Amino acid sequence: MLKSPYDTDCITWSPQGRLFQIEYAMEAIKQGSLCVGLKSNDYAILATLNRAPSKLAEYQQKLYEIDEHIGLCFSGLTADGRLICKYLRTEALNYKYTHGTNINPQRLVGKLSDKAQIKTQRHSKRPYGVGCLVIGLDENGPHVYETSPDANFYEYYAVAIGARCQSAKTYLEKNYETFSNLSKDELIIHAVKAVKSSAQSDVELNGRSVSVAIVGRDTPFKFLTSDEIEATLSQLSQAMEVEV
């Protein structure tokens, strides 16, 4: 890779108006694990495709609980993702201790973006090399947010980030208009389908390589068990065989 005099820190602009350090961080997300988030009127779901560094290693966890009403998954540098997770848990706990109620998910995502912004304003820092999908529940219902190293955040009906995410995005774009009134089980099937559509053919999908979590109006944040994920994958395989 060619050396550039404009990529030694994240506050030096190139003549073309680019910040290379932030672009490198965004590239790390594109190389990371696939993450999918989607919501209906009553539920929000996160699904991830976990990776193992080698055949002898366990799958790396990419999906975490922040609070009883908020969850997060990330794509990119695992160490940065764990640091962000710890920060969000601390902020959620401090807010609950101070105000006696759960923090609003958008407020928490805003705090994370403010923290990420600081990393782009000091030459001694670097941007977080991780993108996050955050699901949360407030009085208005479930929400899905995406955060990025450039300190922007967005709310979505459905979104996918990570390696080979375009296939999952295409699936979600075709079907997101039907998500509004779906039941919990139907929404889970769509999430797993989106993950399956982007998985490489040589990747084995099972209860360990795929993680799914849900939060809803009548459901505190929880992870699906391996057996539940295996049952969903088996159901999808049977449906595909019938179609063929």
Rank of each mutant, 00 (worst) to 15 (best):
Q106M: 06
T98W: 09
G71H: 03
L236V: 01
L63F: 04
Y154D: 04
P220G: 12
L56W: 10
G76V: 01
Q235T: 01
Q60E: 08
F74D: 07
E65T: 04
P105T: 01
K39F: 10
G216S: 02
K3S: 12
K39Q: 15
G71A: 11
E155F: 07
A213T: 00
E27P: 10
V215C: 05
V215R: 01
L93Q: 15
Y157R: 14
T8G: 04
S54Q: 09
L88D: 10
S75T: 13
G32C: 11
T120W: 02
R89A: 08
Y43S: 13
G129A: 04
A25Q: 01
Q238Y: 13
A52M: 08
Q31G: 00
N152I: 09
Q235A: 08
T98H: 13
R217D: 09
W13I: 09
E186M: 06
F221T: 03
E68Q: 12
H123E: 07
N140R: 14
E146Q: 15
H143Q: 11
D114V: 00
T178P: 00
T232H: 03
M240Q: 13
S183D: 09
V242L: 12
N41H: 14
S33F: 10
S211P: 03
Y157M: 10
Q235H: 03
Q60M: 02
L88F: 12
I214Y: 05
E91V: 11
D218Q: 02
I103R: 01
I189K: 14
N41C: 07
N152A: 09
Q117F: 02
F153D: 05
I135S: 02
S54P: 08
K30Y: 04
T101S: 10
G17N: 07
I214V: 15
V242R: 13
V109Y: 05
E23F: 06
I229E: 01
K193G: 02
L93T: 12
Q61T: 03
Y97T: 13
A52T: 11
E91C: 04
L233P: 02
S148Q: 15
I161W: 05
T98R: 15
A213V: 00
Y6R: 07
A79F: 09
P142M: 06
